[in-house]
């Protein structure tokens, strides 16, 4: 059995005003990957290619061991997909949708669906017309989770939710992840949500994967050094430092390969290290995007 839930290799897709370039995405089974990118970065297009809804121009896509799009039906039996812009039939009740899903999916877990109903504070007999956005997202997630999919693909599921609803949904997702063998691809432009539940993080911008690694490794490797330079000296970007911003004598060096020797190396240049700061995932993401865009422009 393929140990990867998602395996995208050299995938490209060109539209008139946008293109995905050489996407490499590997998600081991049982792991949670956060796909972070600004609006229009290519997250949804990548996900649609994963689901077989958009055919890649080149490259190979394999989901749960099924080549895509050729075996999309076989793969989709085990994929639970929910996206922010997904809507259910408003003229019908949630119960109607649950019954319909039950008639389609052999794995439908009625007991679990009932538990989720209570946990999310939903009512099966309520028509979906007029319910809040939060309830709509929860309803969609209920329908997806009760199918017991091996792979969950969530495209910006928390967008537009209030903090309480977001917390409830993320908590439920975290619980779901405890089930053995469940893999999740979670796309968002909200780094906080992704940081909360993901094992691995992938950054995407302007149709390119700009970085991908273990979350802890990201947080461990990225640091900001606040430095005080000697009078009249411009501090260099030492190996491992992706950028130095200096105003007068004060400088900030950002590194994506921090090692304990780096502060010492700066001290060798005559600088004084004022502080070494950890970076949030959002800061890492922004720094990564800026670096990537600069590289492309160069």
């Amino acid at each position: 059995m393929n140990h990867l839930a998602i395996d995208m290799a050299g995938v490209g897709k060109t539209y008139r005003f946008f293109s995905l370039e050489n996407i490499e995405l590997k998600l081991p089974r049982g792991e949670i990957m956060g796909l972070i990118g600004p609006n229009g970065a290519g997250k949804s297009t990548s996900i649609r290619i994963l689901l077989g809804l958009v055919h890649q121009d080149h490259g190979d896509v394999c989901v749960l061991g099924h080549p895509m799009p050729a075996e999309q039906v076989a793969a989709k039996w085990d994929i639970g997909f929910a996206s922010e812009d997904m809507r259910l039939y408003e003229s019908q009740t949630l119960g109607w949708h649950m019954q319909w899903m039950q008639s389609i999916y052999r794995n439908w877990d009625g007991g679990y669906a009932q538990r989720l109903l209570k946990r999310f504070g939903l009512r099966a007999e309520q028509k979906l017309k007029g319910i809040s956005h939060g309830q709509r997202v929860k309803s969609t997630l209920l329908l997806v989770l009760a199918r017991k999919p091996k792979l969950l693909v969530l495209d910006e599921p928390t967008t537009g939710l209030d903090p309480v609803a977001r917390h409830e949904i993320l908590r439920e997702l975290t619980d779901v992840m405890r089930e053995e063998g469940r893999s999740v691809l979670f796309s968002s432009h909200n780094t906080q949500d992704v940081e909360q539940i993901s094992d691995r993080i992938t950054f995407i911008d302007r149709g390119r994967i700009i970085d991908s690694m273990d979350k802890e490794m990201f947080l461990d490797r990225w640091r900001r050094l606040r430095l005080e330079a000697p009078f009249g000296v411009t501090l260099p970007a030492l190996p491992g430092v992706i950028g130095v911003r200096q105003e007068g004598r004060l400088a900030i060096a950002t590194t994506n390969a921090f090692n304990p020797g780096l502060p010492h190396a700066y001290e060798q240049t005559g600088a004084r290290v004022q502080r070494i700061e950890n970076m949030t995932l959002e800061e890492i993401f922004v720094a990564n995007v800026e670096r990537s865009r600069e590289e492309v422009e160069v």
Partner: peptide, 16 residues
């Protein structure tokens, strides 16, 4: 009304 995303998440192809 964006029901298509929901329908296409089911195990069917575009042609089906």
């Amino acid at each position: 009304n964006k029901h298509l995303a929901f329908l296409m998440s089911l195990p069917i192809t575009f042609l089906e």
